[in-house]
Design a protein around this nucleic acid. Sequence first.
DNA 1: AGTATTATAGACACCATAGATCCATAATAG
DNA 2: CTATTATGGATCTATGGTGTCTATAATACT
Lengths: 161, 161
Amino acid sequence: MQFSKSTDYALHALIHLGLSERSHPVGIKELSGSLGVSESYLSKIMSKLRQDGIVRAVPGVNGGYELARPAEQISFLDVIQVIEGRQQLFECSNSSSQQHRLLVEQGSAPDKQRSLERKECLVEKVMLGAEQQMHQYMREHTIQSVLDEAVKRRNHEANKK
Amino acid sequence: MQFSKSTDYALHALIHLGLSERSHPVGIKELSGSLGVSESYLSKIMSKLRQDGIVRAVPGVNGGYELARPAEQISFLDVIQVIEGRQQLFECSNSSSQQHRLLVEQGSAPDKQRSLERKECLVEKVMLGAEQQMHQYMREHTIQSVLDEAVKRRNHEANKK
DNA sequence: AGTATTATAGACACCATAGATCCATAATAG
DNA sequence: CTATTATGGATCTATGGTGTCTATAATACT
Ligand code: SF4
Ligand code: SF4
């Protein structure tokens, strides 16, 4: 299991937009050149980012892309979810197996009130919990926070001289 | 990005082994029947688990599989890493791009002492940090902990009656 | 108004990997 | 020695990620 290359590209494209604060938007040509990826492919990714309201796009001469909201409001989680989708990492496929009944329904007599705990699967609970941990961390880190840290590092480098 | 079905099967197989504490090991026939998956496919997965020391396998009559160590020493992380591999979720592909130089080398004059911070990429740092969060959670949850919780729930159900 | 520029969407090809099956072989209990 | 069970390799198919190409729409500039 790995994150797709598209996620890689999307993150870097957004970082590029983030540190390029200009009057006019950044064209796909400049972006693809900077990242070293074809225009065709990158434009697909940018299009997805636009559909999800991460960036704005303006066609025509001097057109291109710009962040749709401040970089500190674009979290890593936002980006990952646009590209990788929002399904959860672990989705059980055999919920009709014998195993399942043992774990979830516990072999006891079925009663009506059971319905509200039907979804309480112990395996999924662990896997979902783990995913939530990752999500929380990604939610706390934004495009801006990476930019800030880059600046901080640069200053630190300068002081050493 | 999703966990593979094999991970699903592996977890359930181990749980089955965990709650079947008997004298003789559990055959692939019983396992595959319980999970609702073909013997051929499941045996591949079990084989992998054996190679990584999660289970023991004995061939021959009345043979089968059993846990190689106590269930409380088999974490979810162990299982996931056997099946999904140990590469990190995010691996940068374009570390020779223009982007990269901006973020990591920061445009300042290159000096000799740079080598030790060469790997300090800010993007990877975030992605790796997120993954570590997930790993930590998975490390704290074992096959046994799921079994325990199942028992706890069963008792709770019984008390209600 | 007309033209050049730029993003958009769809169709399409390619390839790696997951998912799954089959068989020949080795090891073990009886 | 035989029945049983796990093992490893070969092989097939389906799916999804990766990537290209083209026709279309929208915008700026002259
Ligand atoms: S116990 Fe949970 S993970 Fe296992 S089959 Fe049931 S729902 Fe799926
Ligand atoms: S900055 Fe980090 S993620 Fe980006 S290209 Fe360099 S090493 Fe890769």
